[in-house]
């Protein structure tokens, strides 16, 4: 149990996927302009990460690894994720139209999101078991959601700022992302401090 909590804390705060490990920067910069969109995207990414891990982990450990096909994982994972995202979209559209209306538009964007492929590969690289992988995926998703929501707040302030002409738009957004990332460095000793690991 303690191990799982450490994994969760690490993936949400210490090794935040966006701000520390630089995965999923595209949606972080592209969809963080409004708070509700940032939230929707974050929830959709968390959901897909969880589904993707649930699907790719058994495929890797029961199909690829025993047959010496570990090197095929990049191809297999990206195909599984792409198919999964399409499937989830179709199911949502048919059975839960309300949810589809709010999350559906973000789903296709996630297919080529490096955070989702990254989390599935990292879980394998870190040698997690199934439960640990799932916890780590939820953590990474929540970390992504947290970063998106925090940054959406920062950006709404940024709208009113008046930076030098060359910095307007993307550059000032990146510089403020740098400051948000700086604040996340404060978490770096958290796990050691709390659990004495």
């Amino acid at each position: 149990m303690k191990g799982l909590i450490i994994i969760l804390m690490t993936s949400v705060l210490v090794n935040n996927y966006v701000l520390v490990r630089f995965l999923g920067i595209c949606p972080f910069l592209g969809v963080s302009k409004k708070l509700n969109q940032a939230f929707g995207m974050g929830v959709a990414v968390t959901f897909v990460m969880l589904m993707a891990t649930a699907a790719t982990y058994p495929i890797y450990s029961y199909l690829l690894e025993p047959n010496g096909l570990g090197y095929m994982r990049t191809i297999v994972f990206i195909l599984v994720i792409a198919a999964l995202v399409q499937l989830v979209e179709i199911i949502l559209k048919k059975y839960i139209p309300a949810l589809h209306a709010s999350l559906g538009i973000y789903l296709p964007l996630i297919t080529t999101n490096c955070a989702v492929l990254g989390v599935t590969i990292n879980n394998i690289n870190d040698g997690y078991n199934f439960l640990e992988s799932m916890v780590s995926s939820v953590g990474c998703g929540l970390g992504f959601l947290l970063a998106m929501v925090l940054f959406a707040g920062v950006r709404s302030r940024l709208e009113e700022a008046d930076p030098p002409a060359a910095f307007r738009g993307l550059p000032i957004t990146l510089v403020s992302a740098s400051i948000v990332a700086l604040s996340f460095m404060g978490f770096s000793g958290l796990v050691n401090g709390l659990f004495g690991a």
Partner: peptide
């Protein structure tokens, strides 16, 4: 060399 420097 760390994450904030990259964004900056």
């Amino acid at each position: 060399g760390m994450a904030p420097g990259g964004f900056f």
